[in-house]
């Protein structure tokens, strides 16, 4: 068991912001309590002194550029996911402006699969709104959704045509039911 001793636990979902000790058993949090780690626990378990530190739930970063596929010289899914967990981010959404653009199930499945292989943060792909993020034709949103995309976005190449954006919103409505 790992014990995070007497840190400032900030957990909005459970309405906690105060000094707590967190007991972790394998991949489960067994207990969150006010009492600090006991001397007996310190003998038996791995106790991390968290006084003066913050203890947070895993953070979700909705806007991450992992650059893979296509620009592995800048970043890869493995390096990005590893950096994420080092900073407390356990789930991230990978932007679709890769080469090729994540506008099909095959790219989305590739990104999610590489994330699983890396084994750090949970990597969820974002699909493109338009084919190639060119702002002209809609991407296969139903297929992207089925392949595990959390959302669609053209990211740094926003859809310039209001007409296309309107169609995208209307179309998205019919596949989100």
């Amino acid at each position: 068991m790992i014990i995070l001793d007497s840190g400032r636990v900030i957990d909005p979902a459970n309405g906690i912001d105060g000094t707590r000790t967190v007991l972790i058993d394998g991949d489960r949090i067994r207990e969150v309590r006010e009492q600090p780690a006991t001397p007996a626990e310190k003998l038996v378990h791995q106790v991390i002194d968290c006084r003066g530190r913050w203890v947070l739930p895993g953070l979700v970063d909705l806007h991450v550029h992992l650059r893979e596929p296509g620009e592995e010289g800048k970043e890869t899914i493995a390096t990005g996911a590893r950096a994420a967990v080092a900073g407390g981010v356990t789930t991230l959404v990978a932007m679709p402006n890769t080469k090729p653009v994540c506008d099909s199930a095959s790219v989305a499945r590739f990104v999610a699969g590489r994330g699983r292989e890396a084994g750090f943060a949970r990597v969820i792909p974002a699909g493109a709104i338009t084919r190639g993020s060119l702002g002209e034709q809609l991407a296969d949103m139903a297929e992207l959704k089925e392949a595990g995309c959390a959302c669609v976005t053209d990211d740094g190449r926003p859809v310039m045509s209001a007409g296309v954006m309107r169609r995208a919103l209307e179309y998205a409505r019919s596949i989100c039911r």
């Binding site: 034709q137 809609l138 991407a139 296969d140 139903a142 297929e143 296309v164 169609r167």
Partner: peptide, 12 residues
Amino acid sequence: ARLPGARDYART
């Protein structure tokens, strides 16, 4: 831009 493509339509 009313439809992504034949594949997405066939699917839904």
